[in-house]
Design a protein around this nucleic acid. Structure first.
Lengths: 129, 129
DNA sequence: GTGGACCTTCCCCCACACTGGAAGGTCAAG
DNA sequence: CTTGACCTTCCAGTGTGGGGGAAGGTCCAC
C-alpha cells in the first residue's frame, strides 16, 4: 500500500502519516524500488487504534507508550487499564474544575445583567470582572 | 513605577509585562530619561482585571477586546455580559463533552479489568481500545 | 514521449501564553 | 571607580498535532 492509499483507507492525510512515522507512532515501512513507502495493510488497524485512543482523550505520547509496550511483544492490557484509570480520574478533576468555573462565570454574568448600565463608569476598571 | 516594581505589585513578571505591551493588552508607558518604562500605578488595577478575566477562562484576545472597548471610552458592560454569557454556554458544552468521554473511558477501563489477561494477544491490536 | 497523479525530502508556519538568554545600557551605593 | 541590581532590545524556544508549499523524482496510461 502506498501512502495515499493508506491515507484514504484510514481517513487521514499523507502529511499525518509521515508525521506519525517521525514521532515513532508508526514504524518506518518498507520502500519500493522507487523510494515510495510501501505499507502493510495491517497498518490500517493500527491507525484505527490510534484514532480511537485519541477520541478517548489520550495524547499521542500516551498512545505511543501503549504501542511500544505492545510492539515489544507484551500484551499491554494492564498498562492500558492503568492509563485509562488515570484518565478517568483526570476527567473527574477536569469536570469538577469546569463546574466551579461555570458557577463563577455565571455569577459574574448575572451581576452584569442586574446592574444599571448608567452606573458603568468607563474611566474605571469594569466592575463585573 | 518601574517594570520590576509593577511586576511585584501585580504578582507577575517583567517578561509578561513586556509581552502584554507587545500584544496590546497594556498601553506603551512613559519612559524615563534613561529609557526605562515608567508605569502609572493604575496599571496594577488593569493587571488585576486581566488576571481575573483569565481566571474566568477568557483568552488574552478576548480580554484585549474588552479592554479596547473600555479604552475607547465606552462602558463595556454589555460587551462583557455577552462575552460571559457565551463563555457559560461554552463551559456547558465542554462539561457535557467531558461527561460523555468519561463514560466511554470508564467503560473501556472496566472491560480491561474484567478480561482474562491470557486472552490478550500481543500480535493483534489491543481489544480494549 | 509526455502529461498528470502521485511520491520524496526539506523547511517553515499556525495557536497559546509566555519564558530564556545574549549583549548591552542605567543608576545608586560604597 | 567599581560593583551589582535593574533595565533595554532582539531572537529563539516551549508543547501539541499537525498543515503549506517548494523543488524534484516516479510511475502509468495514452
Amino acid at each position: 500500500m502506498r501512502i495515499g492509499e493508506l491515507a484514504r483507507a484510514s481517513g487521514t492525510t499523507t502529511k499525518t502519516l509521515r508525521y506519525y512515522e517521525a514521532v515513532a507512532l508508526l514504524p518506518a515501512p518498507e520502500r519500493t524500488a522507487g523510494g515510495y513507502r510501501d505499507y502493510d495493510p495491517k497498518t490500517v488497524a493500527r491507525l484505527d487504534f490510534i484514532r480511537r485512543s485519541q477520541a478517548a482523550g489520550l495524547t499521542l505520547a500516551q498512545i505511543r507508550e501503549v504501542l511500544q509496550v505492545r510492539d515489544a511483544g507484551t500484551a499491554p492490557c494492564h498498562h492500558v487499564h492503568d492509563l485509562l484509570d488515570r484518565r478517568v480520574h483526570e476527567l473527574d478533576r477536569q469536570i469538577a474544575d469546569l463546574h466551579a468555573l461555570r458557577l463563577t462565570v455565571a455569577e459574574l454574568r448575572d451581576s452584569a445583567t442586574e446592574a444599571d448600565p448608567e452606573s458603568c463608569n468607563p474611566s474605571t476598571v469594569c466592575r463585573y470582572l
